[in-house]
């Protein structure tokens, strides 16, 4: 019925890109670390696991800065 409702994964991509959008305006040396740090601090393991799944499938829809930050995002332990 509601047309623009996003799936869980789409929402996750959207949120990650929103974070990247904020840090994109920050001083250049803080951008990528800022994204990784933010996700490490506030995203629980399940969300980070999904994020890595999306990245491993090619990172469709994710901003390049999120992909770059992925190296510094903590990988959650296996569930």
């Amino acid at each position: 019925m509601s047309h623009d409702e996003k799936s869980g994964e789409e929402r996750l991509v959207y949120m990650a890109n929103q974070i990247a959008m904020f840090f994109a305006s920050q001083p250049e040396n803080e951008q990528v670390d800022g994204i990784a740090d933010h996700i490490n601090k506030f995203w629980e393991p399940r969300m980070r696991r999904h994020l890595f799944e999306i990245i491993e499938r090619g990172g469709d829809g994710l901003s390049p800065m999120v992909l770059e930050a992925a190296a510094s995002i903590r990988r959650p332990q296996a569930a």
């Binding site: 869980g8 929402r11 601090k41 506030f42 995203w43 629980e44 393991p45 399940r46 969300m47 959650p76």
Partner: peptide
């Protein structure tokens, strides 16, 4: 590890 926020719980 941080836990789920309300919207994350619902998701």
């Amino acid at each position: 590890e941080p836990g789920l926020r309300i919207p994350n719980m619902l998701d």
